[in-house]
Write a protein that binds this DNA or RNA. Structure first.
Length: 312
DNA sequence: GAGATTTGACCGTA
DNA sequence: TACGGTCAAATCTC
């Protein structure tokens, strides 16, 4: 999924619309000045915008492929690559003995390989979840030291944790986040959408193109720093590949508030293609919106879809 | 001895 | 066919 320039812009447009709507909703959330109905309209519009973006991304993801691909989530023995949800982080560590320890992201990983990668000065290490055998967790990550700055590690995550440690971690986070005002979540979720999708593993694109970025963890509120990325001396920029919609550490990126997804089945595997990801996101929409029947400008979205289709 | 890491070989994809 | 990702035997650590 490389040459998707036009659809990328289209997705940006849709996501930008979502951000605008989210900001508007934040402004309207003062109960003394706005009716519940007005908020509902905005929430629905926001979710529709994200749904449209997902649909566009699905189009982008499907179109270039001429041969059928197996879905990783349904074929766990498949060695086919690039079908896993995938995203990367740039982790900056301070030098010293604790350097490697700062790469700890709260999960238990087991190293299963290391390779010298062409054009890079440092080998790439391959890790899989420790609970792969015991709980069938298929999450993996790749860690590679950056050439230009050896204090920066690029961490590429693939697949979603389905193991118990993920559930425990999310339950803990959820409790922390629930203590904060839901209204803040909305504006912060929208502000996290920085740029459009692209191949984030291509350093050239990283420089030349804006990025479509989500947090590496469920950062729905700027005052809540996920516990396992809270160490000092670290900065993380998370950037997700075009084929990725729901990072392993969270399913709630397209929900306006974590308060609305408490009962979402976080253990459900999202190691899948777009169709499955979308199907997993849908319950969030249903759960939070109920029977509201409001959508964003249908004509606009249709034209975006046509743009994407025409591109291929 | 169990579990983790290392490393060369193997395999699928582009 | 080169490259990247995974496997699995050997080795290491606790």
């Amino acid at each position: 999924m490389d040459k998707v320039g036009v659809p990328e812009k289209t997705v940006i447009t849709v996501l930008t619309e979502g951000k605008k709507l989210a900001n508007e909703l934040k402004r309207q959330l003062d109960p003394s000045t706005t009716s519940r109905e007005a908020c509902d309209v905005l929430v629905d519009s926001i979710l529709s915008a994200y749904d449209n973006a997902i649909t566009l991304l699905a189009l982008i993801g499907d179109a270039p492929s001429t041969s059928p691909r197996s879905v990783e989530g349904s074929d766990h023995n498949s060695k086919k690559r690039k079908t896993m949800p995938r995203w990367s982080e740039h982790v900056h560590i301070c030098s010293g003995a604790r350097g490697e320890a700062q790469l700890d992201d709260g999960y238990n990983w087991r190293k299963y390989g290391q390779k010298d990668i062409l054009g890079t000065n440092h080998p790439r290490a391959y890790y899989r979840c420790t609970h792969r055998n015991t709980q069938g967790c298929l999450a993996t990550k790749q860690v590679q030291r950056a050439d230009e700055d050896t204090t920066v590690f690029e961490v590429i995550y693939r697949g979603k944790h389905s193991c118990r440690q993920e559930r425990l971690r999310q339950n803990k986070e959820r409790k922390e986040q629930e203590s904060l005002a839901c209204s803040k979540h909305i504006s912060n979720v929208s502000s996290l959408v920085k740029t459009e999708n692209r191949d984030l593993n291509d350093p050239k694109e990283e420089e030349d193109l804006p990025t479509f970025s989500f947090p590496s963890t469920p950062i729905e509120c700027e005052n809540v720093e996920p516990q396992f990325f809270s160490e000092p001396n670290r900065f993380i920029t998370a950037s997700y590949s075009p084929s990725f919609l729901s990072p392993a550490t969270s399913e709630s990126y397209f929900s306006p508030s974590p308060c609305l997804v408490n009962d979402f089945d976080i253990g459900h595997s999202l190691e899948s293609d777009f169709g499955e990801i979308i199907s997993n996101l849908t319950p969030i929409t249903d759960f939070s919106l109920g029977e509201l029947d409001i959508s964003i400008d249908a004509v606009d979205f249709e034209s975006h879809l046509l743009d994407a289709i025409e591109f291929f």
